[in-house]
Design a protein around this nucleic acid. Structure first.
Length: 423
RNA sequence: GUGGGCGUAGCUCAGCUGGUGGUAGCACCUGGUUGUGGCCCAGGAGGUCGUGGGUUCAAGUCCCAUCGCUCACCCCA
């Protein structure tokens, strides 16, 4: 009985890691251009934190969390709650009126895995806390768009406003009333949702429900003057930045804390998973978590989804791993000992060096050197020790030069480095 | 939680209506070159056919169960 990784948990193998590092690198670079600072957060939090922020009645909290019940702790299903907890706990708002933060790491949800959806998945997440201005909303969306663009991906941006505690309840009442008269046209799930979470009906993909919903009252017509003005300005700022987007008045988010602006980056290239990134404003959440009365907005991108898109789109997704500066092919036991010291000396001086200890043929060792993408190979047999001269082969040009051996390994390393770096 | 598809070598997969598990490709090892990689050629190693039971003279193949993977629903990044 072989032990395997558990369902929904995946190893990221060495050949895939360069692509992951590339995505992280681009994300870090762009986030920093927008003034965001990295924050690193724990993976476990008190269960209550997620229940209070994401919402007791959401699918995530109801059935998807990895929770240690007896300890009252949960593996984070998303980053925002943890980030805000840290923000409040350390009083970060007193240092700077507007905090721009980002974090990268694994999240956990106990859903059935499928394409682009795992139980441990990774997100890059950016949040701006302390600013209500619509400039921020547009800027964050532009930042997400920039990340996708610089990765060589394209996705469409869909934007909506969910209003605020001032205007959403009224809209909700109107929607419920509308749906009540049209139960017959709805699917079973949506008939249930009409009671529990009527906004979700807007989001149903079934043909019958879409028909019903098409004529439903629009949240965008129901916004209060403040939300209306905010949303208008968000759109004009997006226009100003040249970010293209479309309004989607049916877009509803799965977390309870969103207010006003919400948005998704969507693609058709990911099977059933359309969203590669999503986010929105959460103006009441920080206070609700016991913090200061501050607004916030943020978004997350799913890294697995970015990886899938890059792998599918693009043969440059195969990024080479690090190559070797020098492979030492030693023949014979005395040469082996000399090479062993040499390789260590090169490593101490910053080079990537390797050799083989199994005493295999030169041919086999050359093959290994090639496989590890060594730029040079030093051929060192007992003959060479005798003559005090090894052979340095450039693996690309196939050129071979004599290399004088020395009594002092340090000197020898310096000379080798000198030659390698000038050829 | 519900439904479909699939489990054969490290990986990708052949294997028809049951009749000795593949000359398959990639990867690996050795040799062709008594000390020189990639290409080529030759050879080699590698398997409880997911697991357990059943039918049968005979099961990778048929039946049942079970475990695993996967896609989709739900929901979401």
């Amino acid at each position: 009985m072989k032990i395997k990784a558990i369902n929904g948990f995946k190893d990221i193998l060495p050949e895939e890691v360069p692509l992951w590092q590339h995505i992280e690198g681009v994300a870090r670079d762009i986030f920093q251009r927008f003034g965001c600072h990295e924050i690193r957060l724990p993976i476990l939090e008190k269960t209550e934190l997620f229940a209070r922020s994401i919402g007791e009645a959401t699918d995530i909290v109801e059935k998807e969390m990895y929770t240690f019940v007896e300890m009252g702790i949960t593996m984070r299903p998303e980053a925002t709650a943890s980030l805000l907890r840290a923000f409040i706990e350390h009083g970060l708002h007193v240092r700077q009126p507007v905090q721009r933060l980002y974090t990268i790491g694994p999240m956990f949800r106990h859903e059935r895995p499928q394409k682009g959806r795992l139980r441990q998945f990774h997100q890059v997440d950016a949040e701006v806390i302390g600013a209500v201005e619509p400039e921020i909303d547009a800027e964050l969306m532009a930042m997400g768009q920039m990340l996708l663009t610089e990765l060589g991906l394209s996705a469409s941006l869909e934007v909506n406003s969910l209003g605020c505690p001032g205007c959403r309840p009224e809209f909700r009442r109107r929607l419920v009333a509308y749906l009540q008269d049209r139960q017959a046209g709805l699917c079973e799930d949506c008939r249930r949702r009409s009671e529990t979470n009527p906004l979700r009906v807007l989001d149903c993909k079934k043909a019958g429900c879409r028909e019903v919903v098409e004529e439903a009252p629009s949240i965008l017509d129901a916004l209060c003057p403040e939300c209306r003005s905010h949303f208008d300005q968000v759109q004009s700022r997006l226009d100003l930045l040249g970010v293209s987007y479309s309004l989607n008045r049916f877009m509803v988010r799965g977390l309870d804390y969103y207010t006003r602006t919400t948005f998704e980056f969507v693609t058709g290239d990911l099977g059933a998973q359309a969203a590669i990134g999503a986010g929105g404003r959460y103006d009441g959440l920080i206070e609700q978590l016991g913090g200061p009365k501050l607004p916030g907005i943020g978004f997350a991108m799913g890294m697995e989804r970015l990886v899938l898109l890059l792998q599918a789109a693009d043969n440059r997704a195969e990024r080479p791993g690090p190559s070797l500066d020098l492979f030492v092919a030693a023949l014979g036991s005395r040469a082996g000992l000399h090479g062993y010291r040499l390789v260590h000396g090169l490593r101490q001086r910053g080079l990537r060096a390797a050799m083989d200890y199994s005493g295999r043929s030169l041919k086999a060792q050359m093959k290994q050197a090639a496989r590890q993408a060594a730029r040079h190979t030093l051929i060192l047999g007992d003959d060479e020790l005798e003559r005090q001269t090894a052979i340095l082969r450039n693996m690309q040009t196939q050129e071979q030069l004599p290399f004088p051996l020395q009594a002092d390994v340090g000197q020898e390393c310096l000379q080798l480095i000198d030659i390698i770096q000038t050829t």
